[in-house]
Design a protein around this nucleic acid. Structure first.
Lengths: 221, 221
DNA sequence: CTTTAATTCATACGTCCGTTTAAACCATAC
DNA sequence: GTATGGTTTAAACGGACGTATGAATTAAAG
């Protein structure tokens, strides 16, 4: 069957690396296949189109990532909930990817950031679908821990939260952060999580603003 | 001299609208000039290149915007500083643009969000240069108001802050928010500012995380 | 060995892009 | 009127892109 059975994986790896560095539109199929040592037509053969390739790149990492988030959420729910632990369960898996896969990880950390910030409609929808079940469960947990917060206000604050995290992950500083010694200890990513958590926890717990018109929000996460 | 003296302005308006809706790479010179009822070559004649056009679009709004921010900062410094007032001076001018220019405003609100989240290096640098003096002054004011916060921690938290605001401005929800009745009252933008401020103020004032390695950060703003 | 089906390959197609060119245009100065 | 110089115009250039095609290649099945 397969002449080089790992062709799909090699394409996904190359695409992930190039997307995270140059963005989606500025990465051509030719540069991807060249970097993967694969024929130009291989992408369309294995994935159908560039758009489907992009979605596959995200699905490959986001599905296990959300499983891990749910796993940690269940741990927190079993062992005793605090806002800080919920936040850690929610954001740490993304940032810690960089340790588990050596170089692969921090590439994808930036790529996820791009997924949230980039403006291709199909991609936002795709990521939203992948995250929906996980985000829904976390939203319930946050709501239970923040009973003083109206549902609408919680949605907005989770929206701000995602913005802060995505911007941090997508930013060029992320590269320099991860460039330090990272092997074998969870140093920098862990440190970043520890910096984000107090900021976000305090933001979520902030007192309500004075009475406001009801602004609808589509979703968060 | 000028056959149609407003050619440059018409190009800037059309480019701003299209950039904010479709992003920079997905907006062609042909669509810009067509939308502006201008010849294709006009952009290169008046601006030199697409890249210079993008920079001009940002400079046209960002320069007055930062002047307004400084003006409000001076007011706050004169009348009595609080963290909330500093935050309002820092972020409100961006979000309130939508009232001053009717339709123009919320276009540019989203566009600024894109400027922060999009990943063209020249654009990040250009925006950074435009904002630098203003951000430096605000950073001093924040530092004075948050004496317990080490400088490095402040930089990180301002980075999170910018992420939350930019993500909010760039997001698709912004469109729907602004779509409501907005004329003649500062309703929705004001409401959004009032929601952001408690979240951000609490985040900035959060207790320090436990001891961490010193992570460098390049800049914020 | 032959057949078969999955994969790889070189190549080409049509399109759209940013930019350039050189001629046409037009308000003003002389 | 005629010359001048900023501006607009139509047309083209070369290149890069995503995708499609049909033949070559490969590994497994009969």
């Amino acid at each position: 069957m397969a002449q080089q059975a790992d062709t799909k994986e090699r394409i996904l790896d190359a695409a992930e690396a190039l997307f995270s560095e140059h963005g989606f539109v500025n990465t051509s199929m030719r540069s991807i296949t060249q970097s993967a040592n694969v024929n130009l037509a291989a992408v369309n053969y294995h994935f159908g189109s560039k758009e489907e390739l992009i979605k596959a790149v995200f699905a490959r990492r986001l599905l296990p990532l959300n499983e891990e988030r749910i796993r940690r959420l269940d741990d927190v729910l079993a062992q005793g909930v605090t806002l800080e632990r919920l936040l850690e369960a929610f954001i740490a898996p993304h940032l810690e990817l960089s340790q588990d896969h050596e170089e692969v990880g921090d590439r994808f950390v930036r790529l996820i950031g791009r997924g949230y910030t980039d403006h291709a409609e199909f991609l936002r929808d795709h990521i939203h679908q992948l995250n929906k079940p996980c985000v829904a469960r976390f939203k319930e947990a946050f709501a239970a821990e923040l009973p003083h917060l109206p549902r609408k206000e919680l949605s907005w604050r989770l929206h701000f939260l995602v913005g802060a995290v995505a911007h941090t992950m997508a930013g060029p500083d992320m590269i320099r952060l991860m460039a330090g010694r990272r092997i074998s200890d969870h140093g920098n990513a862990q440190a970043l999580v520890q910096r984000l958590i107090p900021f976000l926890a305090a933001g979520l717990q902030a007192p309500l603003p004075e009475s406001l018109p009801d602004l609808e929000l589509r979703h968060a996460g």
